[in-house]
Simulated scan of single mutants.
Amino acid sequence: MTAQLYARDVGAGTPLVLLHAFPLSSAMWLGQREGLADRFRVITPDLRGFGGSVLGADEPSVDAMADDVARLFRRLGVPRAVVCGLSMGGYVAMALCRRHPELVLGVVLCATRASADGDAVRETRLRQAERLEREGGVGVLVDEVLPHLVGPTTLRQRALIYGRVRGLVQATPAPAAAWAQRAMAARPDSFDTLRELKVPALVMVGSEDVLATEDEAREMADALPNAELLVIQRAGHLCPVEQPDLFNQAVAEFATAVARLAN
């Protein structure tokens, strides 16, 4: 059974498809829907099993998630879009570039990695997936994932943002989180995909991100034929949530330039 994704679709103009992080939902993009919909058509899907989207019965796979997004493009009548993926959403964006390159006008890869998981990270994902399935709740994500999602500046100065992120993690359905962890654990290295990319790219990372480092972001930007690297100061892994104005400005400038090139 394929999963038909629930998506919010607001604004008009160049389509901008924003793919959310793990273990959140499209609710994380509130600041982008509010800040970018006056200039772009902002489409924010819930990836399968998260938010308003059903999980379906497919084997866990980032490719399946990318195919879901491709079907959403067709359902919404979107021929091409600037695709922005954050963390897990970045893995899906890279799979979309590999499997459906004709849909991608430009790509923003934020707080994500092109390399496959090393053994230790893969084992952690699979252990968490087993706990999620066994316990039926997301305590393991609150204990082990949530502490790394925002940077120390946010923890010190933006208590409301941290509280919102915590609420989004707590709302995650355990079966979706387990499925996604297994999908991410099995994902391939994407550096070949980046080297062959024919469209402009923007690589972004928070200066305080401990999950996807600045060095990893630089490696991705170096592999891409046509890319810029932007480090967002005083932000951790969720820079669109922690520094929405800086993130929105960068994405708006990139998407505007990409649309001008395409016309």
Rank of each mutant, 00 (worst) to 15 (best):
V203E: 04
A111Q: 13
L141C: 07
G151C: 05
Y91C: 07
A178Y: 11
L160G: 12
G106S: 01
L149E: 03
V107D: 02
M220T: 14
P188T: 07
A217L: 03
A185T: 11
V121G: 04
A223R: 03
A176K: 07
V142Y: 00
E144N: 13
E196S: 14
E196M: 12
C110A: 15
V145F: 06
L202G: 03
S190V: 00
G118T: 11
R131I: 09
A221P: 09
F191K: 07
A185I: 10
E133W: 00
T124M: 14
L96K: 10
R195D: 00
D143T: 13
V138I: 13
L168R: 05
R122C: 13
V210E: 10
V150N: 04
H100A: 11
A93E: 06
V203Q: 04
H148N: 13
P147S: 03
D189S: 01
Q128T: 10
M204E: 05
G137Q: 13
L149R: 09
P200N: 01
R125F: 13
T154W: 05
A177D: 09
L126F: 05
D189H: 09
V205T: 11
P175K: 03
A129Y: 02
L160P: 01
T154H: 03
L155C: 10
R218A: 14
L202N: 06
E133F: 00
E123A: 15
I161H: 03
E216V: 03
G118E: 11
A212C: 15
A186R: 12
M88G: 04
G90N: 10
L202D: 05
A129D: 09
V138K: 01
T172W: 02
A93N: 08
G137R: 15
G206Q: 01
V205G: 06
M184W: 04
R166W: 01
Q128N: 15
R127M: 11
V169F: 01
R218F: 07
E144K: 12
T153R: 09
L103V: 07
Q181G: 01
R187S: 01
S207T: 07
R127N: 12
A186E: 14
V104Y: 06
A217C: 06
L103E: 01
A129N: 10
R99Y: 04
S115H: 14
D117L: 08
A95S: 14
R182V: 07
I161P: 01
V107W: 04
V138C: 08
Y91R: 11
A95P: 03
L96F: 08
G90Y: 10
P101W: 08
D143L: 07
L194R: 02
R195Q: 02
A221V: 12
P175R: 05
A129H: 05
R187F: 04
T154L: 02
A180H: 06
E214M: 08
